[in-house]
């Protein structure tokens, strides 16, 4: 483990994780809204926002899958040191982190069981940028409609069809996060 892995965590975990959780909650409860997540400095290629989510939600009880370039020694060491989360294959993951391309194929992840739909993965998809443009979102949490610069629509539309099963997703770019629960209907604009 490199000394860098020891850095970049929360300096005041109870308060920083509380503030970060509220942003994550607002993001997931209001799909299409953008929220700032700061306070963590994870090693590249992980974004600040994804790093904050990891520090806020992951621990020894939540297996994490790192996909593609995120599966590097620096990120692995950082997550292990700061959260103790076991790093696992995609099908065992409670959280999976990577670029949208690296997270594919999506049928590897747990989508819950018919009697326990909550036992499903939460994807943290890293994007280059995040704006309120692009595909149209409707559903719980959205008054009329919202827009979000998602990398595609097909996978999310497919996911919606499996409701109440399915994956839930945070999309992150730099220090921004948006949420996309399985309940959201995603259509091309």
């Amino acid at each position: 483990m490199t000394p860098e892995a020891l850095l970049g965590g929360f300096t005041n975990a109870p308060v920083q994780s509380a503030l970060a959780f509220r942003s994550a909650l607002e993001a997931l409860a209001r799909p299409g809204t953008l929220h700032n997540l700061t306070g963590a400095l994870p090693p590249p290629p992980m974004s600040k926002a994804a790093g904050v989510l990891v520090l806020t939600l992951c621990d020894g009880t939540t297996p994490v899958h790192l996909a593609g370039p995120h599966d590097c020694a620096q990120v692995r060491d950082w997550i292990t040191f700061h959260t103790g989360a076991p790093l696992v294959a995609a099908d065992k993951a409670i959280f999976a982190i990577g670029t949208w391309a690296a997270l594919q194929p999506l049928d590897r992840y747990a989508i819950g069981q018919p009697d326990y739909p909550d036992r499903s993965v939460t994807l943290i998809a890293e994007l280059r940028a995040l704006t309120q443009t692009g595909p149209r979102l409707t559903g719980p949490g959205i008054k009329t409609e919202a827009r979000l610069s998602l990398p595609e629509t097909a996978a999310f539309a497919q996911n919606r069809l499996q409701f109440p099963l399915g994956f839930d997703c945070f999309v992150t770019a730099a220090d921004l996060v948006a949420g996309l629960p399985r309940s959201t209907k995603v259509e091309a604009a």
Partner: peptide, 24 residues
Amino acid sequence: NFAYLDEQTKRMIRRAILKGIAVP
């Protein structure tokens, strides 16, 4: 701790809340 509960317990509850939001 801040708001009584320890951080691990809060993380567990927070994850449950997020799944609850995802499946209303």
